[in-house]
């Protein structure tokens, strides 16, 4: 019993969760009881969908020991190409065909990353930095990107369809829980299963911990990286697709720049930046914290002039706590090692 309590206190997820609770109480207090209202919680959940899906992909790459900074560009290009194509052929059907197309393009672009990172063994951050430029360039040059104010009806219908509508009994304000939330849940469940219950998923953790040992243990390091980047491409493309559906317009560049907050959220959630460690739960909690902070500054009564300072400071504090946790874990691990060594003598 004592041991399990100690285990909980030793986990980064616990601290992020505690931070979430403290912050939400603070917002509740400062906003005159507006945080814990049905419609506000739905708003936060709705704002979490896109960053949350992105975070799942980012988490996989970080666990494998690399950084992916190309996913906003990858998502933008995939969804822009899809939307433009669907508009050009006057597509009037449902969501399935555009969704398949966007996933296919995402997979293709992910394979581009995966080839260089996996088979040529180049640094993931450098490759994806370059890939990001390439993807933007294709959008700009080949597709001559500009904002698409109208999106196909099927996509629009999906983006605006609601699972349920939450009403604030006091103010009468209503908020829609988008159907897309189910996609987020599905992506998280699939990723969890993949990472924790399959040989491939354990391979991702293994090669993040130590590629040489992973190879010695029988994992195909190159292929694992390659396939992982394809998956990440697919996941990112889905996130971009949902964003466009929900916004009911396709803006080619306004997802760019999101990568920083997403990576911060994942690291905040306890994923080791050196790879090999971290949990999907932490990743989601960390992202939720960032989303909550970004969308509660007015509720919290922070003046616009101080908003970025506040958000930045919270990220620094949050990641600081996570980093301390990692340090502490490393120290106790090395202590354990010395103890076993001494024991062996």
């Amino acid at each position: 019993m004592q041991k399990s309590i100690k285990k909980i206190f030793g986990r980064t997820e616990f601290y992020v969760f505690a931070l979430l609770v403290v912050l939400s109480v603070l917002i509740q207090f400062r906003s005159g009881g507006q945080f814990y209202t049905a419609n506000n919680l739905v708003d936060i959940a709705s704002a979490l969908i896109v960053p949350g899906i992105f975070a799942v992909g980012t988490f996989m790459v970080i666990v494998s020991g690399g950084f992916d900074v190309s996913f906003p560009a990858l998502a933008s290009l995939s969804v822009y190409a899809t939307t433009k194509f669907m508009l050009n052929i006057d597509y009037s059907g449902g969501i399935l065909l555009p969704l398949l197309m966007v996933i296919a393009i995402g997979a293709l672009l992910g394979a581009f990353n995966g080839f260089f990172v996996g088979y040529l063994n180049l640094n993931a951050m450098i490759v994806t930095l370059g890939a990001s430029s390439v993807f933007k360039g294709i959008m700009q040059g080949a597709l001559n990107s500009k904002q698409l104010a109208v999106i196909p009806e099927g996509m629009r219908a999906f983006g605006t369809s609601a699972l349920f509508t939450a009403t604030n009994s006091q103010s009468g304000l209503t908020s829609r829980m988008p159907m897309a939330f189910l996609v987020f849940v599905a992506v998280v469940i699939l990723a969890w299963f993949l990472l924790n219950r399959t040989y491939f998923g354990r391979g991702i953790y293994a090669l993040g911990g130590n590629p040489a040992s992973a190879k010695a243990a029988g994992f195909n390091v190159k292929r694992t990286k390659f396939i992982m980047f394809i998956l990440v491409g697919m996941i990112s493309a889905v996130a971009g697709f949902i964003r466009v559906c929900m916004m009911q317009q396709c803006h080619p560049t306004n997802m760019l720049g999101m990568e920083m907050n997403i990576i911060a959220g994942v690291v905040l959630g306890g994923a080791a930046i050196t790879g090999g460690a971290g949990t999907l739960l932490g990743c989601i909690l960390g992202t939720l914290l960032i989303v909550m902070v970004e969308n509660s500054m007015i509720l919290l009564g922070v003046p616009t002039t101080w908003k970025s300072v506040f958000v930045g400071a919270l990220i620094v504090i949050g990641t600081g706590v996570s980093a301390l946790q990692v340090l502490r874990a490393n120290r106790s691990a090395s202590r354990a090692r010395t103890m076993t060594k001494e024991g062996a003598k």
Binding site: I263, A264, I273, T274, S308, G312, I315, T319, A323
Partner: peptide
């Protein structure tokens, strides 16, 4: 890696502020 991440966090804070 830790330094890299710290730089990124700070540069982000700088960009947005």
């Amino acid at each position: 890696a830790l330094l890299l991440a710290a730089t990124m966090v700070f540069s982000m804070a700088a960009c947005s502020s």
